[in-house]
């Protein structure tokens, strides 16, 4: 079955959506992701949706759900690379993804995660500033 790959990068999980997200795929992703967060004790999830061009209310809600679930499992969620048309659609649908962090691209998302997590974990303490 088709799956969206979840890559582990240290304390982060990296999800890149490269295909059209249909409902079943989104459900599977939600399942996989929660399992992986627990398994790897991940601190943060970075979802790259730069190739996603069409969203509906279901996918929008899915993103919000994934973020909420991650938070329950004590991991932050950053959604990166949203297309302008997708952003406008989500706003018009009334889904402004409260509680989800956003960044323009993967690089900035990573930077954001490193800065926000460096405080609580000794490893990256030198990077703050």
């Amino acid at each position: 079955m088709e799956r969206i790959p979840i890559l582990k990068m240290g304390r982060y999980l990296l999800v890149t959506v490269q295909v059209d997200m249909h409902d079943r795929l989104a459900m599977t992703l939600q399942d996989d992701l929660t399992n992986q967060i627990v398994e790897h004790k991940a601190r943060a999830v970075l979802i790259d949706i730069s190739t996603l061009e069409i969203v509906d209310s279901f996918i929008g809600r899915m993103l919000a759900n994934i973020a909420a679930m991650s938070r329950v499992l004590d991991a932050m969620t950053v959604v990166v690379g949203m297309q302008p048309s997708v952003a406008i659609t989500l706003v018009e649908l009334g889904l402004s993804l409260k509680g989800v962090y956003t960044a323009l691209n993967v690089e900035k998302g990573m930077e954001f995660l490193t800065t926000s997590l460096s405080g609580e974990d000794g490893a990256d303490a030198g990077n703050t500033g």
Binding site: V79, M82, V86, S96, L97, T102, L104, N105, G109
Partner: peptide
């Protein structure tokens, strides 16, 4: 507010 929300979704 809509404009602000959309920009936030893009990460700005």
């Amino acid at each position: 507010l809509k404009t602000v929300a959309a920009a936030r979704l893009m990460g700005a």
